[in-house]
């Protein structure tokens, strides 16, 4: 130690090393999660509304069975779980738009937090809320009397949750597309239309022929088919897997490109 100025002598020299993982920290993630769970609108649209939908549209189908004898209510419950998860992950990803509009992302550039660590935090937050949305929808279903084998709960839930990663990417894509404070008010209706084409509100099979063909190319279709496959026992078509992978890539690459544009220093 060399001699410091008297005012500094009592103060130890700060640790100037770079943070690990680009500033990604569980503590910040925790505050982020609490923040999301405090947002009444998010809770209403992702955790409460899908459950209420089930009680309104699902329960009246009680007693009816699918071709393989499984309850129709389970079909509706799984579809709504997919819907809940996609709204949840989109809203967290889309919040990037709000944070850009507020100037928070600029404020973050004055800290060691690397943009990739910021996006990682958003993705984990999105997937956490997505998981919570699936679990709550399944709880509502279970309490309301839906009974299926354990592997269906597990695999369908897992598929709904993992599939919602597509919409976490979609949310980020929208978030980096335009800074807007209330982006979810714009995306909400879009998600509803996509959910309809994905067979989350009514089976795709009841749609007119032309729309059925169109539906196969929309981004919810693949995750819907995959999530219901354990229940229906229908094989997983290559088209459904391809749908999921292609949309995940499209939104992922799109978000990455916009993200790079946003963080480029001009």
């Amino acid at each position: 130690m060399t001699t410091s100025t008297p005012t500094r002598a009592a103060v130890t020299e700060p640790d100037r090393r770079l943070p690990a993982l680009g500033g990604f920290a569980p503590g910040a993630l925790g505050i982020e999660l609490r923040r999301v769970l405090r947002n009444r609108r998010t809770l209403a649209f992702t955790l409460i509304m899908p459950g209420v939908f089930f009680l309104i549209f699902g329960l009246p189908q009680g007693g009816q069975s699918l071709d393989n004898g499984r309850p129709v209510t389970a079909y509706i419950m799984i579809s709504l779980a997919v819907y809940a998860a996609m709204v949840a992950t989109t809203s967290v990803g889309g919040a990037v738009a709000t944070e850009r509009a507020l100037g928070w992302s600029r404020q973050l550039r004055l800290t060691p937090l690397r943009p990739a660590a910021y996006v990682a935090t958003k993705l984990i937050t999105a997937m956490s809320l997505g998981l919570l949305a699936v679990v709550i929808e399944f709880l509502v279903g279970a309490v309301a009397g839906v009974r299926v084998p354990a592997y269906v709960w597990l695999l369908s839930g897992l598929a709904a949750w993992v599939g919602s990663l597509v919409f976490a990417a979609f949310g980020l894509f929208i978030g980096y597309l335009a800074p807007a404070e209330n982006v979810m008010q714009i995306i909400g209706p879009v998600l509803a239309v996509l959910a309809m084409f994905g067979g989350l509100f009514v089976p795709v099979e009841v749609l007119p022929d032309v729309l059925q063909q169109v539906a196969k190319f929309t981004p919810v279709y693949g995750m819907g088919v995959l999530a219901r496959a354990p229940l229906t026992g229908d094989g997983v078509s290559l088209a459904a897997v391809a749908n999921l992978v292609v949309w995940a890539l499209l939104f992922g690459v799109g978000a990455a490109r916009l993200f790079r544009r946003d963080t480029a220093r001009v």
Binding site: R16, E99, A101, L102, G103, R106, R109, L110, P112
Partner: peptide
């Protein structure tokens, strides 16, 4: 910035409401 050797108060830096 990454080492915390410089910090700033800017007009444009926003906060989460």
């Amino acid at each position: 910035v990454a080492r915390g050797r410089v910090a700033a108060v800017l007009q444009t830096g926003g906060l989460l409401k």
